[in-house]
């Protein structure tokens, strides 16, 4: 049976992980490769690396980092941040990334999704959607790191990008992000039921129950979290054992050694 995926997300700036990551048994927790290897051993199903570097110099560092990650880890990973063209994606895939995630550039130019799908196949094109709910607007799509409201209704936008060739949706609720009060189950369920491709729930994970809810109540295919894992508030082997007990199909692999 296909399993639900648990995905730690690492923010990268100038080739280093940001957010003070706390790990005792990692020599250099600022080193994304060390951290990635550790997560892979813990049973993470995939990893996401988000480049939040603003400079061109930093972007070159990121491409080099992608290569280092691909060299050292044996699970799939997605990279995102600042991708605006077919050429950008080509560099990242050639360096060993499995998937790319695009966000604001898809809003600016939806045809980019189609171009990427045609060049590289839908399977490596993830569209990240930042969404926010207000009483007045309902769930709308936001762009530019969640600072600017767009005209798109979230479900409509998800359907549109899937129609253009997106192979996966990474849905982040800005209302929930950072709250540790749980994923936004309503919009996640709505998007998961509206599109034919896998949906990753993101934003709001604080406890193990939240992951069970995302999978069992909102029908997400994967769930992503960052600080919860980085700060060791939740260990992936414990989370997976719990999910299994709750009746969620997860990969409990043979080598969950530390």
């Amino acid at each position: 049976m296909l399993t639900k995926r648990i995905i730690p997300c690492l923010d990268i700036k100038d080739g280093r992980t940001v957010k003070g990551v706390q790990f005792e048994n990692i020599r250099d927790a600022g080193d994304p490769v060390e951290l990635a290897k550790w997560y892979a051993q813990q049973g993470a199903d995939e990893l996401v690396f988000l480049d939040i570097t603003a400079t061109n110099e930093g972007r070159k560092t990121f491409a080099q980092l992608v290569r280092d990650i691909a060299r050292h880890i044996d699970i799939p990973f997605t990279v995102g941040g600042g991708i605006g063209s077919v050429a950008d994606v080509e560099v990242l895939l050639q360096n060993g990334a499995d998937k790319v995630s695009i966000n604001s550039s898809a809003i600016k130019n939806p045809q980019l999704v189609e171009e990427l799908a045609r060049h590289f196949g839908s399977q490596c094109v993830t569209v990240a959607i930042d969404t926010k709910y207000t009483e007045a607007t309902g769930w709308k799509v936001y762009t530019r790191a969640g600072t600017v409201e767009t005209e798109h209704r979230t479900v409509d936008w998800a359907k549109q990008v899937v129609g253009l060739g997106a192979g996966e949706i990474l849905l982040t609720s800005m209302n929930n992000d950072g709250t540790k009060a749980g994923f936004a189950l309503d919009i996640t369920r709505e998007v998961a039921q509206a599109v034919s491709v896998p949906v990753i729930a993101s934003g709001g994970a604080g406890r193990m129950e939240h992951f069970a809810d995302a999978f069992l109540k909102a029908h997400a295919d994967a769930a992503l979290a960052a600080s919860l894992f980085h700060f060791r508030e939740l260990a992936i082997p414990d989370l997976k054992q719990y999910l299994k007990q709750q009746g969620v199909e997860v990969r409990l692999h043979q080598d969950l050694h530390d």
Binding site: E46, Q123, C124, V197, P198, Q254
Partner: peptide
């Protein structure tokens, strides 16, 4: 669709799978 993620191998019948258990997980997309 895509079939994306970790799923199980069954009915293994080749030296290609020496040392691999039935129902082992592998990654698909």
């Amino acid at each position: 669709v895509p079939h994306m993620g970790w799923n199980q191998l069954e009915g293994l019948q080749s030296p290609l799978f020496n040392g691999i258990n039935e129902k082992e997980y592998v990654y698909y997309v």
